[in-house]
Design a protein around this nucleic acid. Structure first.
Length: 714
RNA sequence: GCCACUGUAGCUCAGCCGGUAGAGCAGCGGUUUUGUAAACCGCAGGUCGCGGGUUCGAAUCCCGCCGGUGGCUCCA
């Protein structure tokens, strides 16, 4: 007889084959009514699931706070929506419909595009199915029979799904028995019946490639959300509204922080004066930290020769996501095409495409053509590497330039500009360096996904024996930055190379060394972390700080990366104690990541109400009337002299509108000054939340205000 | 880049089935000198994203571009 252990530790003996639902009934009628699924040894199952062996059993009730119950609810809601869509559009082919955070979606293949105008009809049909309160009925068939059945339906997606599942396949009927009702190949589990879906809403429709493959057919993905009760749904919808209010694009506009102008270009952020204040404060903070930590500021230009990025590996690897190069001459452009063709050819022999480009070169620039084809390495038969070298030699005469996609090559050349001793290391070069990346148009968004952005970048060159300490220093700096701003909801990810992919440069040994160093450093820091295969940079593994914003979106902000490969590609050295040349190890790191993205996230994090030290405008002095205007000016001047960003509002308005305007701009302190304040040399302090903090001596306020700024109080 | 939606004054939006534009806020001018969440009167402001087409007539219908939004893919 199977022994069932309940969460409170009690055990029940039940006959083999007793279902989860029956156990619920044994415990009590209330639970039997409320239970919608069970969790057997940690696995969620239907109420109809039979228990055959000893197990731990937990019964799930619908609860907006219980993710397991929501999972089941939304999975079932996806089936109901699928049935609704299929009944409205019988030619629909269903693909895949899982629960996701906050809801569910169903991918469908339907030539007629759905739009939000169709949602109402879908919702009505769903409501009807839910009202009918039909049971979800599971039945299993062996694989052969299942495939026969799916084949008959002629739905290639479901056959695909079935092929990737293991063991016997199950179907769920939205009704008491197969045959007369909607059914779907599905692993389950589901609610006992459709009536348990308390509240739902069809949210949106979008395109989605089948199996995430851009070459595959684009399906329609219909998103919905479902909750135990109407109240839960309303709460969720209200949350979405709240998130919209915090949207940095909206607030950036309202508060005059930044703009993106189509005339300048998509994804190119223009920082307005108020946004620039915030950025400057952050930069000032970090600059001071860097000096304390032994960094040396440097400046480098925004472009560099293509040859630089050929050596680093950026140019060939990321050429699709770069702004097109600027060529010095047509010769340079042709030579680059030739180089590209030679690099891409499989064998050692010059390929037809190259011959064609060579002919073009001969016509355009006979001298360059002669120089290249006369080069001994180019003539040396079928040696691809030699050919590339010969072309590169010619490109030194005339090449192109690239807007820099990263700062590291420039910093590397600063390192290489003088001989380095082991005593000089570590060398830490820091720069707020602006980089340009040609992101796909559909990816651009406000400040968080842009085509030009400034990294708070630095490159540390150190000896292998210094590596751990240096990584740790970088990790601590990043944590300090996040703590400073109260961005406490972050996770740490160790991003490793996917050995199966060929997108990385460098040897396996280098990667092993770097990955080991990164792991060790994170472990030593005591932080909880996850590892992610295939998330590394192309030159080395990373420690990524992933911060959660107010809407629950995750952003990769700070990053620390260990790199053995670029020092090798650039043949960097230092002279060791043994008087021999050694190769340094590099660390790339950016605590903020990008200033654009970081400030974008901060806007949402603070909902535009920045802490005093960051606020573009810190204090507004509002005079009650002209009788107190002189004193108001005194207050303004005192604060201004103390370094506070302050404005005087001496317009002939009432206090109400003056406060209102300042609050709309999220100014932290609003000082009301009238005849009373003038008489006692005080200010009436109001915050942007509408609280009146009472009167304070002017001198005391100036002191408190400057201290809060100095201490960067949140 | 792909799919869907979307684009009217500086901002937020109205303008149904085609009859050549309207409000609030902001701005400007005036009145009000005011004690804590938006004073009053007036003025000005738009090639209705751009380009084609249909039509006697297009902000409105159709097509193509260009922005933007939500997803997908991508993300050094």
């Amino acid at each position: 007889m199977p022994q069932v252990t309940l969460p409170d530790g009690k055990t029940l003996e039940v006959a083999p084959g007793t279902t989860v639902g029956q156990v619920a009934a044994m415990i009590g009628p209330g639970l039997a009514k409320a239970a919608v699924a069970g969790k057997v040894n940690g696995e969620i199952v239907d109420l109809s699931h039979p228990l055959e062996a000893d197990c731990r059993l937990e019964l799930l009730k619908l609860d907006a706070a219980d993710p397991d119950s929501l999972y089941v609810l939304r999975h079932s809601a996806a089936h109901v929506m699928a049935e609704a869509i299929c009944s409205l559009f019988p030619e629909t082919k269903l693909v895949y419909g899982p629960p996701v955070d906050n809801g569910f979606y169903y991918d469908i293949d339907l030539d007629r595009p759905l739009s939000s105008q169709d949602f109402e009809a879908i919702e009505q049909r769903m409501a009807q199915i839910i009202k009918e309160d039909r049971p979800f009925t599971r039945y299993e068939v062996d694989r052969q029979e299942a495939f026969k059945k799916l084949q008959a339906e002629g739905n290639r997606y479901k056959i695909d799904n079935a092929e990737r599942a293991e063991g016997p396949l199950s179907f769920y009927v939205t009704g008491p028995e197969p045959g007369r009702y909607f059914e779907d190949l599905c692993r389950g589990p589901h609610l006992p019946s459709t009536g348990r879906i308390g509240a739902f809403k069809v949210m949106q429709v979008s395109g989605a490639y089948y199996r995430g493959d851009q070459k595959e057919k684009q399906l329609q993905r219909v998103y919905g959300t479902a909750w135990p009760t109407r109240k839960d749904l309303d709460k969720y919808l209200a949350q979405l509204e709240e998130a919209k209010k915090r949207d940095h694009r909206k607030l950036g506009q309202e508060l005059g922080l930044f703009t993106v102008d189509p005339l300048v270009g998509s994804g190119l952020v223009l920082w307005k004066p108020k946004g620039a204040v915030i950025r400057a404060q952050l930069e000032d903070f970090l600059r001071a930290e860097l000096i304390k930590s032994g960094y040396q500021p440097v400046y480098t230009p925004h472009i560099g020769k293509l040859g630089l990025y050929r050596t680093s590996g950026h140019f060939p690897y990321y050429k699709d996501s770069q702004f097109p190069p600027i060529f010095e001459s047509r010769t340079a452009e042709i030579l680059n095409r030739l180089w590209e063709a030679a690099r891409g050819r499989p064998s050692g022999e010059i390929c037809p495409e190259e011959r064609q480009i060579l002919a073009e070169l001969r016509q355009t620039d006979a001298a360059a053509y002669e120089a290249l084809t006369g080069h001994s390495a180019y003539k040396a038969g079928g040696d691809k590497a030699a050919h590339l070298k010969a072309i590169e030699a010619q490109l030194e005469v005339s090449d192109g330039y690239l807007l820099k996609p990263m700062n590291c090559p420039h910093h590397i050349r600063i390192y290489a500009s003088e001989p380095r001793s082991y005593r000089d290391l570590p060398i830490r070069l820091a720069e707020f360096g602006t980089v340009y990346r040609y992101e796909q148009s559909g990816e651009l968004s406000g400040m968080t996904r842009v085509r030009g952005f400034t990294q708070d970048d630095a490159h540390l060159f150190c000896r292998p024996d210094q590596l751990l300490e240096e990584i740790t220093g970088c990790v601590n700096l990043t944590r300090k930055v996040l703590d400073l701003l109260g961005l406490s909801d972050y996770s740490v990810r160790v991003s490793l190379r996917d050995p199966a992919s060929d997108k990385y440069v460098g040897s396996a040994e280098n990667w092993a060394l770097a990955e080991q160093a990164v792991r060790e450093a994170v472990k030593a820091s005591g932080m909880v972390f996850t590892e992610a295969l295939g998330e590394a940079a192309f030159y080395g593994p990373k420690i990524d700080f992933i911060v959660k914003d107010c809407i629950g979106r995750e952003w990769q902000l700070g990053t620390v990366q260990v790199d053995y490969n670029l020092p090798e590609r650039f043949e960097l050295t230092y002279i060791g104690a043994d008087n021999a040349a050694h190769q340094p190890v590099m660390i790339h790191r950016a605590p903020f990541g990008s200033m654009e993205r970081f400030v974008g996230i901060l806007i949402e994090h603070f909902a535009g109400a920045f802490p005093l030290w960051l606020a573009p405008l810190q204090v507004v002095v509002a005079s009650v009337s002209e009788k107190s205007a002189d004193y108001a000016r005194t207050v303004r001047d005192r604060l201004f002299a103390a370094g506070v960003r302050v404005e005087l509002d001496d317009s002939p308005e009432k206090i109400g509108p003056k406060k209102h305007n300042a609050r709309k701009q999220k100014v932290p302190y609003i000082l009301v000054v009238g005849e009373k304040e003038a008489a006692e040399q005080s200010v009436n302090v109001n915050d942007r939340n509408g609280r009146n903090l009472g009167n304070e001596d002017l001198a005391a306020f100036v002191e408190r205000c400057t201290r809060e700024i100095r201490e960067r109080v949140l």
